[in-house]
């Protein structure tokens, strides 16, 4: 998941009467759960909204390499190192599929990357938090990939075909990551007192940032209505957040860790867990660029891009020379 606060490129939902004939036919397809494919006609705003959402998701996969990469060289066993390397490789692969999905809408990867580097596109707030101890890597797999799965399972039914299909593949890999993350947490939670301390610290620090991944309350989420009507978004932020909390609390209890905040309580009447709100002003700060790692993350990405320029140029020039030689040889 990794799309938050996606501004739908239109305010308000058009009534059937306000729609053109083309728009009505489009909405009928959506309502009948027929996937929209790249060559189909679509409203410009539908296209623009999807590009934003898929682009943000792709950027999140790419920037998400950084907090996990932070621990690859320090992973405590060869097996954990291999698992983490494989996971980070998967995330970069997800970035590739998603950029490709955005390309089917007519937006190039280079353009999306440029917008990210200029600060005009975002990635998920979660990756602006640091990974400070080894248990954070387990917690990221368990909670962050876990939250992503809750959202992405819903998105497998999203209306745009290439995005929905990318989600099917991505969800399979993310489920694997979440299980591996939980397993790493289990080792820590059931390990030495110091390991247990690391596990508790990781859970406490990452709990609210994971909650924030679902975005603001539905009542504050002004852009959702049109996205829901277009089935770009399938479930509301609050529904997904509740689902995540309900599935995660028993997992925390199984680990024998303390609950990360005192507001978590089973509510018999609702049949769900109650929980406290994250600090939404902190969330807004992170989105505005003031999270603990925003500046470092973007500097790292820009540096990678700038330092790599000579490599990209060199390989392109070689391809050009090779093609020219092939033509000359004919």
């Amino acid at each position: 998941m990794y799309a938050q606060m996606i501004k739908t490129a239109r305010s308000g939902v058009k009534t059937r009467e306000e729609m053109t004939e083309q728009e009505r036919a489009f909405q009928d397809k959506i309502d009948a759960d027929i996937k929209i494919e790249p060559r189909d006609w679509m409203p410009d705003d539908y296209r623009a909204t999807l590009i934003r959402q898929i682009g943000q998701h792709a950027h999140s996969e790419v920037v998400g390499q950084l907090p996990e990469g932070n621990w690859i060289t320090r992973a405590p066993t060869l097996e954990r190192k291999a698992i983490l390397l494989a996971k980070v490789q998967d995330e970069a692969g997800h970035g590739l599929y998603l950029y490709s999905a955005a390309e089917t809408l007519g937006e190039s990867r280079d353009e999306l990357v440029r917008l990210l580097h200029e600060g005009r596109m975002k990635y998920s707030s979660i990756f602006n938090y640091p990974t400070l101890n080894w248990a954070d890597i387990g917690a990221v797999g368990w909670l962050v990939d876990g939250a992503a799965i809750v959202n992405q399972v819903a998105l497998q039914r999203t209306s745009y075909g290439p995005y929905a299909r990318a989600m099917v593949r991505i969800c399979k890999e993310e489920s694997f990551h979440a299980r591996q993350g939980y397993h790493a947490m289990m080792k820590m939670a059931l390990g030495s007192p110091e390991q247990r301390k690391m596990a508790q610290d990781a859970l406490n620090r990452l709990w609210f940032p994971a909650m924030m991944m679902f975005g603001p309350h539905d009542s504050e989420s002004t852009h959702s209505e049109q996205s829901m009507a277009w089935k770009i978004k399938v479930k509301s932020n609050d529904e997904l957040r509740q689902q995540f909390v309900d599935q995660t609390i028993p997992q925390i209890e199984y680990l024998g860790l303390e609950l990360p905040e005192p507001g978590i309580k089973w509510n018999e009447d609702r049949g769900h867990y109650d929980f406290s709100d994250p600090d939404w002003s902190e969330f807004m700060d992170v989105l505005r660029g003031n999270g603990p790692c925003n500046v470092d993350r973007m500097n790292a990405r820009r540096k990678a891009w700038d330092d790599g320029e000579w490599v990209r140029d060199g390989l392109l020039e070689h391809a050009r020379k090779k093609a020219a030689r092939a033509v000359a040889a004919e």
């Binding site: 990867r109 540096k303 990678a304 490599v311 990209r312």
Partner: peptide, 10 residues
């Protein structure tokens, strides 16, 4: 592995 996330292209 030190390169993770810092390569010239995805």
């Amino acid at each position: 592995s030190e390169w993770c996330g810092h390569a010239p292209v995805l």
